[in-house]
């Protein structure tokens, strides 16, 4: 077969496939939510205790409570859409969801594509869960050692570059914890808040484990709205809500309710907005 013809035809097939551009995102999200009588929020379904699945099939967690609070303030119903790190920004840009509350770190690169609401609602850093017998004392101790991690976590690159561990990245937390339990790695690098809550739960399984290092690289977490709306009615509404959450202690109360060790960030913000 004529090679050029073949290539041309293959390109035509690809082009036909590529048609179907995403629908234009509607501008006034606040109006849209009120019109449809429902707020659609992208949340996590695999990140206890922020957003996780209940045996009844419902989603639960601190961020779910926050999403429900927003819906209540608007006087509308709620729909929760489980998202993952790789699709949440696209969903928001396409207009499939109105809001992201999904353990999302706030950084300059993401600010170019989506609207991060300030003040931030949480801050988490990086640390390591390790068996006490591994005897880790400082970050440099990780050099050349096998360390379990989660695929695609933002801190992997930084830890790798600074301390040179041999990172073993897994798809999910249970997989990584299984590898840690089996001794396939000396520690599990993850969010300090998660490690603290796991250890604080007082489970016998973790009595020989510790969080030995100094928490580094504190990253604020943000609720996000579509970028064009950051300074529109929808963005302003969410900024006001976020301030109130800090001011009236909602976030501190939720943190306590879900058994998360109190973060200095929330206590500080509460004091700042109250005072």
């Amino acid at each position: 077969m004529n090679r050029r013809l073949f290539l041309g035809a293959a390109l035509a097939v690809l082009a036909a496939f590529a048609i179907g551009a995403p629908a234009e995102a509607q501008q006034n999200t606040l109006e849209k939510i009120k019109q449809r009588g429902k707020l659609i929020v992208g949340v996590k379904n695999d990140y206890k205790p922020w957003g996780f699945l209940d045996p009844s099939g419902a989603l639960k967690g601190m961020e779910i409570d926050m999403a429900e609070d927003v819906a209540k303030r608007l006087g509308v119903g709620i729909e929760l859409v489980p998202v993952v790190a790789s699709n949440r920004q696209e969903f928001l840009q396409q207009g499939k969801i109105d809001l992201i509350i999904a353990t999302m770190g706030d950084n300059p690169k993401r600010r170019e594509v989506i609207g991060m609401i300030e003040p931030n609602y949480y801050a988490g850093g990086t640390n390591v869960l390790a068996p006490k017998k591994a005897g880790l004392k400082k970050w440099a101790d990780l050099k050349g050692k096998k360390v379990c991690a989660i695929q695609g976590a933002y801190y992997n690159k930084r830890v790798q570059e600074l301390y040179g561990p041999d990172l073993q990245a897994f798809a999910g937390i249970p997989e990584a914890l299984t590898a840690l339990g089996a001794g396939n790695c000396v520690g599990f690098v993850y969010d300090n808040t998660f490690i603290e809550s796991t250890l604080a739960a007082g489970d016998a399984k973790w009595k020989d484990y510790e969080m030995p290092l100094v928490t580094e690289d504190e990253q604020p977490w943000a609720v996000a709205v579509p970028l064009p709306e950051l300074n529109g009615p929808w963005g302003e509404f969410m900024k006001k809500v976020s301030v109130e959450w800090h001011k009236n202690g909602t976030l501190l109360a939720l943190e306590k309710k879900w058994g998360i060790k109190q973060s200095p960030f929330l206590a500080e913000m509460n004091k700042k907005y109250k005072g």
Binding site: L53, I173, L177, L180
Partner: peptide
């Protein structure tokens, strides 16, 4: 690709249990 089918829900259930022995 984020469809809430059996595999995804099983993964979410495992995360909710946080018990490596269930894996």
């Amino acid at each position: 690709v984020g469809v809430q089918e059996a595999m995804n829900l099983t993964r979410a259930a495992l995360n909710a249990e946080s018990r490596p022995d269930l894996l």
